[in-house]
Design a protein around this nucleic acid. Structure first.
Lengths: 114, 114
DNA sequence: GCTTCATTTCCATATTCGTTGAAATATGGA
DNA sequence: TCCATATTTCAACGAATATGGAAATGAAGC
């Protein structure tokens, strides 16, 4: 539910999409701010929401903060939404899966895919 | 986007789930209010949001208003979310589909499935 | 240690949201 | 016509949200 709410906001959805495109390596906050033309403090606010929802991870690299999408959570959300749709008839519903655009088969993506 | 926002609220999500369970024939507002223990005016507010998002339709039956889930819109939303996830690599992503639990193959559901 | 760069924290503000109570509207039946 | 039922409309309120400016924090380079 918090993941759903986190994505239900234009700017946050844009941020997440951008991070999905960036792939598992993520991308520094500053580049996101520049790409989406968002004030850095505003962006921090949205990052917090996304992180709280488990949709994003952060790590520090020098003075930059690198944010990256968590595909696992996105897949859980998609699973929840389809389950929601096909109550009691799961077999009639195709499962939805979210993978990095250019899969690098890292540890985390393997887990998410399993 | 409005569909995403519409579902990102506990009560509204519950309402939608209930309507999905109810299937294409839908269910009167009063029954929804009773099932979820929501005040009728509050419920109208949420129905409006869902309708605005195209997630729900209404028709009058006697003094009751019958609300029904629109699977088509839900499928569009799922499509959007997976597209969002598999940018440029759609073939690596399984499509998500939302169907009524007990498919009755009405005109509208056939359209949604196509 | 000082300065610069990247990001966050804090505080204020305007807006939107979800809910409620009271009154209005529409339908069906006696 | 009068009444009961089902739902909506309206006005109001507190809470949460999104955004902005100013100051603080942390890391790197001189």
């Amino acid at each position: 539910m918090t993941a759903l709410a986190a994505l239900a906001q234009e700017n946050r959805l844009d941020v997440f999409r951008l991070l999905v495109q960036a792939g598992p390596d993520g991308m520094p906050a500053g580049r996101v701010a520049e790409a989406l033309d968002l004030a850095p403090n505003t962006l921090t606010f949205h990052f917090d929401r996304l992180r709280q929802a488990g949709l994003v991870t952060v790590r520090r690299d020098g003075r930059s903060m690198i944010y990256a999408a968590r595909f696992e959570t996105m897949n859980t959300l998609l699973g929840f939404l389809t389950e929601n749709c096909c109550q009691g008839a799961a077999e009639t519903c195709a499962p939805a899966v979210c993978k990095p655009a250019h899969s690098k088969r890292t540890k985390s993506t393997k887990e998410a895919a399993s």
